[in-house]
């Protein structure tokens, strides 16, 4: 296990990217896989905010960032489902 949070975040980001690539490649991406892929994107965004941008050390702002990401996610998801 890597101790340093930065390389750990990098490994997580690469892992999440591979996962979404696998999901997208798996078959013609349907609704469910697309939604999963969007979720993985949001997870990556949160990782970048928490570790690369160091919000993990500032709980107040991390909560704020979570809200923003959640709103973006709901908005995009809603538009995707409607479409």
């Amino acid at each position: 296990m890597i101790r340093d949070p930065l390389p750990r975040a990098w490994a997580l980001l690469i892992g999440l990217s591979l996962l979404s690539a696998a999901l997208a490649d798996w078959s013609d991406p349907g609704r469910l896989t697309s939604i999963l892929i969007l979720g993985l994107g949001l997870a990556k965004a949160r990782t970048i905010l928490a570790t690369y941008l160091r919000l993990a050390g500032a709980p107040f702002w991390m909560r704020g960032a979570d809200w923003v990401l959640a709103l973006v996610g709901v908005l995009l998801l809603g538009l995707y489902i409607v479409g």
Binding site: A24, D28, P29, S34, I37, L38, G41
Partner: peptide, 9 residues
């Protein structure tokens, strides 16, 4: 950007 534009079908 990447998932929304390239991947989501």
């Amino acid at each position: 950007l990447f998932p929304v534009i390239y991947l989501m079908g």
